[in-house]
Simulated scan of single mutants.
Amino acid sequence: MLSRVALRSAAARQSTALVVRGSATEVGGARDEQNFPRPVRGEPGKVRLGFLPEEWFQFFHSKTGVTGPYTFGVGLATYLCSKEIFVMEHEYYTGLSLALMVYIAAKKLGPPLAAYLDKEVDAIETEWNESRTDSIKSLENAVEAEKTAQWRAQGQELLIQAKKENVLLQLEAAYRERLMNAYTEVKRRLDYQLEKSNVERRLSQKHMVDWIVTNVTKAITPDQEKQALDRCIADLAAIAGRK
């Protein structure tokens, strides 16, 4: 009974400390696990004789020594029995037999039961930790997926920019092609006009030359032609004499 009271008081103090610590660490939405680590499952304190807390013996040890707690217990029991404050009737011996059976059962069945219960507690704690770890891992995977999606979105922006540049290049190529077609057509027409002018000029010159030769030929009389021929012969003879 006394050990239960001590354990309850310790649990109450721990729960109060956890409430204060939780209120101090949850400010801002993030837990400061470095300065305020997560609570660890507490273990019950040490006891002697199966039900007396170790703190009682430490309290007597500083005043009466090592045998003080036992002397106090034996003296108190002797006083209660001698003054018949605690009457040892048949229920007392029944209680002794029950206590003996409980002691034997605790010694025989206590360690396996304690190991089983500890195993169950560890399994529950492991399951909770696994669920917490899985939640953290899923959140980390979600963060990585979000980063990947952001990276892909940036790639889509680059792809759209490249497509815009390709469209601009295609427009520039089409513009230059049309400009070259216009230049070629204009040059072809100008070449045609130039060739036409050249042909007309050659025809005009040929026609003019033919007309002049014809008119000159018509204007020369037979006497003028004979005189010119004689003069040419005389000139050739003079040139031949010089040589």
Rank of each mutant, 00 (worst) to 15 (best):
S62N: 07
R8N: 09
L158Y: 09
E146I: 01
T25D: 10
E55Q: 10
Y92A: 11
K218L: 03
E91Y: 15
Q58Y: 01
A10F: 07
S197L: 11
Q227A: 14
Q150L: 04
L98E: 10
G45K: 03
K108W: 08
S97A: 15
A174N: 12
I220H: 04
L109N: 09
A182E: 14
D191Y: 09
V199M: 14
T214F: 09
Y175W: 13
V74A: 15
A234V: 07
G110V: 05
G110W: 03
A234M: 12
E140F: 07
R188W: 04
M1S: 07
S23V: 02
G42L: 12
M208H: 14
T148W: 06
K137G: 10
E91I: 07
K63C: 08
E144I: 06
V20H: 12
N198L: 08
A30M: 10
V74K: 14
R41D: 06
N215H: 12
A115T: 15
F72C: 01
N166V: 15
Q150F: 00
A123W: 12
K163H: 04
A238H: 04
R31D: 03
K63S: 15
S138R: 04
L229K: 12
A10L: 05
A115E: 15
R41E: 07
I233M: 14
E146S: 07
I220Y: 04
I124R: 11
D118Q: 12
S3E: 05
L76T: 15
A162R: 11
R8H: 07
K163P: 01
E26I: 01
L7R: 07
V5Q: 05
T67N: 14
E195D: 05
R189F: 05
W56R: 00
G68E: 00
I104R: 10
M208I: 03
R189T: 06
Y103R: 02
A12K: 04
K46D: 08
A153G: 08
R38I: 09
A6H: 05
Y192Q: 09
P53Y: 05
I212L: 05
G73H: 13
W211P: 02
V74Y: 13
L96V: 09
Q170F: 09
H61I: 02
P69W: 04
K46Q: 13
T126M: 12
Q156G: 06
R188Q: 11
A99K: 01
P44M: 02
I124H: 03
W151A: 13
K226E: 10
A17K: 11
K243T: 02
E144P: 02
T221R: 02
R152Q: 14
D134V: 01
V20P: 00
R38Y: 12
L168R: 14
T25L: 03
S97F: 11
L76N: 15
V102M: 13
G241Y: 08
G73W: 14
